[in-house]
């Protein structure tokens, strides 16, 4: 469960990106975060995995206030949260398999478990047959699937995605969305910032609209509500 209470974020340069957000997201929900550019969507997302600390307020993840979490404990938080970005963030010198395994290696998972989990996850995203390829040999959609595989290979309870389809063509975007649907169906909470009107209006989920750092709308099975 993710809960924010009166959360504010002012960057060191003086920009206030988030000003007074109260929200509660239950385990297993699928939530779209929508709103114009610069509204504070990415800041909202970054605060969930402690990339940014709120300047004021409380953020509870499964009951733990992560705004007061010691830096040393942050890695443990991150092991329970999968993060997906618009630009994939893959390591170009590693194969598909290695990129996904990387997430388990650096948290010192056992080698035989690594192999098993990575292959299972690659199967889930439909890339088992391309495990030995390099990211540069894949299409954008396939690269994003590798990145998703990496984010979920450790079976996190929460998966957050910042415009995961932002760099992809419409058809590929639908494929990516079906993977997120599957992840959600398996019980993970999904929080996704997106500009994709069509997707939001077709695959109906809770929609939270942010403008100028505030929540202006929060509807179950909501609409995108902006011209895209």
């Amino acid at each position: 469960m993710i809960q924010m209470q009166d959360v504010h974020k002012k960057y060191p340069n003086g920009v206030t990106a988030v000003s007074g957000i109260d929200v509660k997201i239950d385990q297993g929900e699928f939530v779209y975060i929508v709103g114009p550019s610069g509204a504070g969507k990415s800041t909202f997302i970054k605060m969930i995995y402690r990339e940014e600390k709120p300047s004021k307020g409380v953020i509870l993840i499964n009951g733990v206030d992560i705004s007061r979490l010691k830096d040393k404990k942050v890695p443990l938080l991150r092991r329970n949260i999968g993060v997906v970005f618009q630009d994939f963030k893959l390591l170009p010198t590693l194969t598909v398999f290695e990129n996904v395994a990387f997430a388990l290696e650096v948290i010192e998972e056992q080698p035989n478990l690594i192999k098993k989990k990575v292959m299972e996850t690659l199967d889930l995203v439909g890339l088992k047959h391309k495990a030995r390829m390099l990211p540069t040999e894949l299409s954008g959609g396939e690269q994003q699937r590798v990145s998703i595989a990496r984010s979920i290979v450790n079976s996190p309870k929460i998966v957050i995605a910042d415009e995961p389809t932002g760099n992809l063509d419409p058809e590929t975007s639908w494929e990516i969305m079906s993977i997120f649907e599957e992840i959600n169906a398996r019980g993970a909470t999904v929080v996704m910032a997106t500009h994709n009107k069509e997707i939001v209006n077709t695959i109906k989920h809770r929609v939270i609209a942010i403008e100028s750092g505030r929540i202006v709308r929060d509807e179950q099975r909501g609409e995108y509500g902006y011209e895209s």
């Binding site: 890695p75 991150r78 963030k89 390591l91 997430a103 650096v106 010192e108 990496r150 984010s151 450790n154």
Partner: peptide, 17 residues
């Protein structure tokens, strides 16, 4: 940089990095 960024993202400790 990217490698370190990803390590941190997936929960590697600073000691490990």
């Amino acid at each position: 940089r990217r490698e370190i960024e990803i390590m941190k993202l997936v929960g590697a400790t600073n000691t490990f990095i």
